[in-house]
C-alpha cells in the first residue's frame, strides 16, 4: 500500500536533483537562492514520504536506501520531473506544471487516513502554495515578456506539454489507495490544477496546447532515458562509499 506514496516521493526527489543543478547557474543570484529554497522544500517532502514508505513496507529500508539503492526501473516518479533542465524557460515550465499538481495534491493529502502522511502534507501544502506562486510569476513574466522570452516559453510548453497529464491518470494502484483513503485519486486533482494553469497561462499570453496523447509510465517504473543518467549522478557517492557518514 506504500506504492502511491512512493510515486509522490520519487517525483519530489527527482525534481530536487534537477533543481540543484541550477545552483550557481541561475539567471540572477536572487533566483539562484529561490530555486535552491524550492529544491530544499521539495527534498524535505521526498525525505519525509520515503521514510514513511520504508516504515509501511516493513522491510527495514530507510530513506537513504530508497533514494540511493534503487535503479531507474524501481523509481515511480512522473516522467515530467526527469526531463532535462534545458534553458530557464524549460525549467520554469516544468516547475509550474509540477507546482500546479503539488499545490493541489498536498491540501488534499492533509485528510489522508495515514496520520503521518496527513502531517507531512500539512507542512508541504504551505510550501507548495509559495512554489506555485513563484513559478507562476515566472511563467507570466517570461510568457508576457519580450519576443525572445515568449518564443522560448512557447518552445518549452510545446516540449513539456505531453508530460503534463501523467500525474492525473489513475491506475488500479491509485484506485485501491484512494478507496482506502490513503491518497486522493489522481484524476480528482485535475480540475483545480487545470483552473490555476489556465489563469496563469492566460495572463502569460501563452496558448494552452490541445490535449495530446499523455506520455505515461513513469509512475509504473517505465522511464525516459534521462532518469538513468540523473540517478548515476545522484547515487554515485553513496554507492561508492556505502554506509559513509559525515
Amino acid at each position: 500500500m506504500s506504492e502511491p506514496l512512493l510515486r509522490i516521493a520519487d517525483s519530489c526527489l527527482v525534481l530536487t536533483q534537477r533543481l540543484t543543478a541550477w545552483c550557481g547557474h541561475a539567471p540572477a543570484l536572487e533566483e539562484d537562492i529561490a530555486l535552491a529554497n524550492v529544491a530544499l522544500d521539495v527534498l524535505g517532502h521526498a525525505r519525509a514520504l520515503l521514510t514513511r514508505v520504508g516504515e509501511l513496507e516493513g522491510a527495514g529500508r530507510e530513506e537513504d536506501d530508497l533514494a540511493y539503492l534503487r535503479d531507474a526501473g524501481e523509481f515511480r516518479n512522473q516522467l515530467l520531473v526527469e526531463q532535462p533542465n534545458g534553458d530557464f524557460a524549460h525549467t520554469v515550465v516544468r516547475q509550474f506544471l509540477f507546482d500546479t499538481w503539488s499545490a493541489t495534491l498536498w491540501p488534499a493529502l492533509t485528510s489522508s487516513t495515514d496520520e503521518v502522511v496527513a502531517g507531512i502534507a500539512g507542512k508541504a501544502a504551505k510550501e507548495a502554495a509559495y512554489h506555485v506562486r513563484h513559478s507562476g510569476g515566472w511563467v507570466i513574466r517570461l510568457g508576457d515578456g519580450t519576443q525572445e522570452s515568449h518564443a522560448r516559453m512557447l518552445a518549452a510548453v510545446e516540449d513539456l506539454w505531453p508530460y503534463a497529464g501523467e500525474a492525473y491518470l489513475d491506475d488500479a494502484v491509485d484506485v485501491e489507495a484512494a478507496e482506502a483513503g490513503l491518497v486522493p485519486l489522481p484524476s480528482s486533482l485535475a480540475g483545480a490544477a487545470r483552473f490555476r494553469l489556465e489563469q496563469v497561462f492566460a495572463e502569460a499570453t501563452l496558448p494552452i496546447p490541445p490535449e495530446p496523447y499523455w506520455q505515461r509510465g513513469g509512475r509504473q517504473g517505465q522511464h525516459t532515458e534521462h532518469l538513468t543518467y540523473l540517478l548515476a549522478d545522484m547515487q554515485v557517492v553513496h554507492r561508492a562509499h556505502p554506509g559513509a557518514t559525515w
Partner: peptide, 20 residues
C-alpha cells in the same frame, strides 16, 4: 526532449541590463 537552446550558459555569458 530536444533542448533547443543548447547547454545552459553561465551568467557571465549572458549579458543583460542589471535589474534595479
Amino acid at each position: 526532449m530536444r533542448t533547443r537552446s543548447g547547454p545552459v550558459p553561465s551568467p557571465a555569458e549572458q549579458p543583460r541590463e542589471a535589474w534595479p
